[in-house]
Amino acid sequence: MKNSFSIEGMTCKNCVASVTEKLLGVDGVYTVDVDLRKGEAEIEMKEHISISALKNVLPKKYFIEQKVKGKADDNLPFDRLRKTQKNEKVIGEKTKLQQLKPLLLIFAYLFASSFLLNYDNWSIGEAMLDFMGLFYIVFSFFKFLDLKGFPESFGMYDPIAKLFPFYGWIYPFLELCLGVMFLMRFQISTALLITILILGVTTIGVTRTLLNKKQIRCACLGTALQLPMTEATFIENSIMLVMAIIMLVQIF
């Protein structure tokens, strides 16, 4: 028999290989076909295998859930199974703040650094430019940690990266260049326009992904940190877009 499952937490081909290997190790599993972009897996098994048995073999970073309604898991009635899965999601939602902790700490450091750099001669405009420059430098660093895995993760929701995979490869370098431009106060208006363009396009892609109810991981911090895409991407993009628009209005 074949069953379809949704799997959250996969960001690159290494994740696919790991998930496939772990699931194939489950007794009774014949074949495993994992789709990274859809976040799905089709598993052919000798007989029904409980979802708990599949969860036990996967690392904690992955969450697997059966997509096809029908036979109850572990002999539970289907409505009871749905309640159990719903409770698991509620528990996951309660830990969102913990999942976002790395991102919040990064922003706290960036805000503090921007404030200290302009403490003696305070200027909110200068502080915002420093923040944006530091933002790009720090975020590009995380992408460079896994330069091979980032393009595929980024292409899962960024419209440009989907059409032109090469864009995913140059994006970390683009962020690094923008960071240097902001910090050195070089061609600020150009850097602001590029910021609004690339982050605006990414936000559109994220919105489409959410409307399609697809669950994928945020690639904005590369694949080094596993963050919930919705919250992480909107927090990052909204702050940067607001700052870019404000600065652009002030310039013109």
Rank of each mutant, 00 (worst) to 15 (best):
K61H: 03
D79H: 13
G200D: 04
I7Q: 00
R37W: 10
L178T: 02
S189D: 14
Q85I: 12
Y157G: 00
M45Y: 14
D130K: 03
I106L: 12
Q250M: 13
S189G: 10
M247P: 00
S153Q: 00
F166L: 15
F5D: 00
G149C: 09
N118Y: 02
G168C: 04
A232S: 11
M240S: 04
V242M: 12
E175F: 00
F141G: 08
R37T: 12
M240K: 04
I7Y: 00
V29S: 05
I43D: 03
Y136C: 08
L58S: 08
C220G: 11
T209G: 13
L163F: 09
T203N: 06
T95A: 14
Y109C: 15
I49A: 10
I245Q: 04
A161V: 03
C177R: 09
E231Y: 14
T31S: 00
K143P: 06
I160G: 10
F115H: 06
L225K: 07
C220I: 02
M10S: 04
K71A: 05
Q85E: 15
F131W: 03
A224R: 13
E126L: 12
D73F: 09
N118W: 02
F173C: 06
G149E: 09
L104A: 12
I106Q: 11
I235F: 03
Q215N: 12
T202M: 15
T233P: 02
V19M: 08
I170W: 02
S50D: 13
E231I: 08
L81G: 08
G200R: 06
I198P: 02
D120Q: 15
F141P: 06
L211A: 05
I235A: 03
L211N: 05
E93D: 14
N212W: 04
K38M: 10
L58A: 04
F154T: 08
F139V: 07
M229C: 10
L110C: 01
V19I: 06
F144Q: 07
W122N: 06
C220W: 07
L227S: 01
I188V: 15
W122F: 15
S52Y: 12
S153H: 00
K60S: 14
S114T: 06
F139L: 15
E47F: 11
Q187I: 13
I251A: 10
E47Q: 15
F154Y: 15
P172N: 10
Y171K: 01
R82G: 05
K94D: 12
Y136T: 07
I239D: 03
V19R: 07
F154V: 05
F182Q: 03
I43E: 01
G125H: 11
I43T: 04
Y136E: 03
T207G: 08
D130I: 08
